[in-house]
Simulated assay, not measured.
Amino acid sequence: MTEPTGRSGLTMLHVGAFSGSVPALRQALADRTAVEAHDLMPLTRAPGLAGARLRAVREARRAGPGTPWTKTDAWTAALDRRVRARGLLGPRRPVLIVQTLPALVPPAGVRYGVYTDRVGLEGAAVGGVHRSRYTDGWLTRERRLLLGAHRVFVMGPSTADVLVTEYGLAADRVHVVGAGTNVAPAAADPGPRAADPPRLLFVGTQWELKGGPTLLEAFARLHARDPRRTLTLVGSGPDGPLPPGVRALGRVPHAAMGAAYDRADALVIPTHMEAFGIALVEGLTRGLPCVASTVGNQPWIVGDAGIAVPPGDVDALTEALSRLSADYAHFRARALARGAELRATMTWPSVAERILTELSGG
């Protein structure tokens, strides 16, 4: 594909596959300009950084239980030095840093952007056992990374609000560009559907964090009233035998997820914390009403195509699922409309275009 005028290529730095999003974004960017992508994940095992890892582990322990060693000043400073030594943060062309986890601080003169689904203070604000953890040194480096960026690209508006109010970024430097999905939308408009009762689907790889126990308790109440109700779990599930009406599929490849969505009538993810909520976008683009939680960007994603409830509130979740069942035709119509909106905007090509336009612009 011919490279657009004014786009001289891009260096992309990321840590791992980011739930499948990185490969899709990298390809969408490569369709528009030359991309030199570097995965920093292998450096976590590099022999030459063993000393930094040990210092990072000690720093994490001092910060308290559950603090990852990758979110320390010791590790990210060492990572920064290695990245600079390899010449990956040069001024010859723009740099896109995916996620704030590496907390790199590019030198002056480097035009760079950050694309992330969440920032440290946003995750920490959740509180309790599910909050994000990091050391003070890591947070200082993350703040420097964000404040020095030419543009910060985020998936949803709740993250943008935190960047402006808590990090002090100018609003015109923060851009909500959304995200693409890992599952293609349905090939055809699925149209209205009568669901009595709706078949429920849960998608999430972290059972406790995603509100799985709360969902099982709420579902048990509903199943006791109507044994026809069903709930399918994808990604994770509880230990031990499953309650009546519940089945677990375990991990499902992205290529097979379309079928899982198509066998459901509604998506339920009552999570305690969510960086963005790509599964909600995937469900809505296939016409599924959603019951989500009130954290992060979930209410914005769902809109009026479902219901958002406080995380951990079994009574509220039970009521929401009952309401969804009683007025399913209404929520189905809204999900089809919201899904059409998301199909037009939440694609990796559109995300890539927005990022490149801003990084190569003024």
Rank of each mutant, 00 (worst) to 15 (best):
Arg45Val: 04
Pro289Asp: 06
Ala17Glu: 05
Trp207Gly: 04
Tyr134Met: 01
Arg111His: 11
Gly287Met: 01
Pro198Asn: 01
Ala275Thr: 03
Val295Leu: 12
Cys290Asp: 10
Arg84Asn: 10
Gly113Ile: 10
Val162Glu: 07
Leu10Met: 09
Asp189Glu: 11
Met1Gln: 06
His254Lys: 04
Val83Asp: 03
Tyr112Leu: 13
Asp226Thr: 07
Ala224Phe: 12
Val302Ala: 06
Tyr115Glu: 05
Pro185Ala: 01
Ala194Leu: 08
Ala266Met: 13
Leu43Arg: 03
Ala188Val: 13
Arg225Met: 15
Leu317Pro: 05
Ala187Thr: 05
Pro91Arg: 10
Tyr328Ser: 00
Ala30Lys: 11
Glu142Cys: 10
Gly245Met: 13
Ala248Gln: 11
Glu274Cys: 01
Ala275Trp: 00
Leu121Gly: 15
Ser322Phe: 02
Ser19Phe: 03
Ala34Cys: 06
Ala30Thr: 08
Ala195Arg: 02
Gly296Cys: 07
Ser19Ala: 14
Gly123Leu: 07
Gly156Ile: 11
Gly303Tyr: 03
Pro198Leu: 09
Ala335Lys: 01
His150Cys: 13
Ala28Val: 09
Asp80His: 12
Ala17Gly: 06
Thr165Ser: 14
Arg82Trp: 15
Leu145Met: 09
Ile97His: 09
Glu341Ala: 15
Leu139Met: 11
Asp196Met: 03
Thr67Lys: 13
Val83Leu: 04
Trp138Tyr: 14
Asp172Val: 12
Ala184Pro: 15
Leu200Ser: 10
Leu40His: 08
Ala220Arg: 11
Ala316Arg: 03
Ala316Cys: 04
Pro157Met: 04
Pro102Gly: 07
Arg45Ile: 09
Val114Phe: 07
Glu122Gln: 15
Leu96Ala: 09
Leu147Arg: 12
Asp327Phe: 04
